[in-house]
């Protein structure tokens, strides 16, 4: 019989994995927000598209269902190929969305650009809904099941994998934004687009890059989601997206480490509410926390990266 402490630890493991997923999704979202101060509702359905792209790539490689398990080099090759293709396709999708629907909206006041992203989001959602007949699809599972049992607390190899990938992507993005030339240009644009433009920063290119990077991350998250949960459906973007939103706001919207922290916190809150209160109230608890954070600490736990310009 599992002890209360072991149960708590097990739920923490569950929460960390869930949180890593939210964090991955929040990263790209927060990156775009940091630069454009635009809430990109389409982001979460780019994530959903990413899971389908990953599915198609893996199936094209002949990996379908739960029967094909790979090891060693073929596994790494298959996963890397799927990751690269998914990130490329989603990145390009993000750039196209920006170029054709959001660039014309730049400089338009008020909620117009946000409404446009809602429209784009709806289009992506419904195209997939119609294409798949609203069916959930089985996602290939080429990873061998490998559990580590530490005092009744089971950690699965997949969970460790998702932690590592999230960490790598977060640190990578953080370093990219901090150190690379383009990253610096991004931060300059985030601070003051007009000044950045005057200093010779190609703002269009910066924004495109941000959309590419953010959407590619969403794509990666989509693939990982599929590999982890072994299914995908047109609707996965919505509920995961809503929590990723909350994660980004909780950590400090526009703040890369904040998104990571927020994601993990939301994951933990969700699992702990399920364990100690009731699963049915988990959403209410998450969104109540969101509202409380906004009321008492609008900049989020780690503070917003971009100053709250007026």
């Amino acid at each position: 019989m599992i002890t209360p402490i072991e149960l708590f630890a097990q739920q923490a493991v569950n929460g960390l994995s869930l949180g890593a997923m939210y964090a991955l999704l929040a990263l790209g979202f927060t990156l775009v927000y940091g630069i454009l101060e635009l809430i990109n509702f389409a982001h979460f359905n780019v994530f959903m598209i990413g899971s389908f792209v990953g599915l198609i790539v893996l199936q094209a490689l002949g990996i379908a269902g739960q029967s094909v398990v790979l090891h060693g080099a073929p596994l790494i090759f298959a996963l890397l190929l799927a990751l690269i293709v998914t990130m490329l396709v989603c990145g390009i999708l993000g750039v196209l969305i920006e170029r054709f629907t959001l660039r014309p909206m730049r400089g338009v006041r008020g909620p117009m650009a946000m409404i446009t992203t809602i429209g784009v989001s709806y289009i992506l959602y419904n195209v997939v809904l119609l294409a798949t007949n609203a069916q959930a699809l089985n996602f290939p599972d080429p990873l061998a099941t490998q559990d580590f049992d530490i005092h009744h607390v089971v950690i699965r190899a997949k969970q460790i994998l998702i932690w590592i990938i999230s960490l790598i992507l977060m640190v990578g993005l953080d370093q990219f934004v901090r150190r690379s030339r383009l990253g610096k240009a991004m931060r300059a644009t985030a601070q003051d687009a007009e000044a950045a433009r005057m200093m010779g920063v190609d703002v269009d290119r910066v924004v495109s890059t941000a959309f590419f990077a953010g959407s590619a991350l969403a794509g990666a998250a989509g693939l990982i989601f599929g590999l982890y949960y072994n299914f995908t459906q047109y609707s996965i973007g919505y509920s995961a997206g809503l929590r990723a939103f909350t994660a980004a706001v909780l950590g400090g919207i526009g703040n890369v480490p904040g998104a990571m922290l927020g994601g993990i916190l939301i994951g933990l809150i969700e699992t702990m509410s399920s364990q100690y209160i009731a699963t049915k109230w988990a959403d209410v608890i998450i969104f109540s926390i969101l509202i409380l954070v906004l009321v008492f600490k609008p900049a989020g736990l780690l503070g917003a990266l971009a100053p709250n310009r007026s």
């Binding site: 019989m1 599992i2 149960l7 097990q10 569950n14 996965i236 509920s239 399920s274 699963t279 959403d283």
Partner: peptide, 21 residues
């Protein structure tokens, strides 16, 4: 317990069920 049909992760709920025996 009541699942949110839109959520993806039921591991917390299932872990809880496992712990109840």
């Amino acid at each position: 317990d009541r699942l949110d049909p839109k959520a993806a992760d039921y591991s917390a709920t299932l872990t809880k069920i496992a712990s109840t025996g």
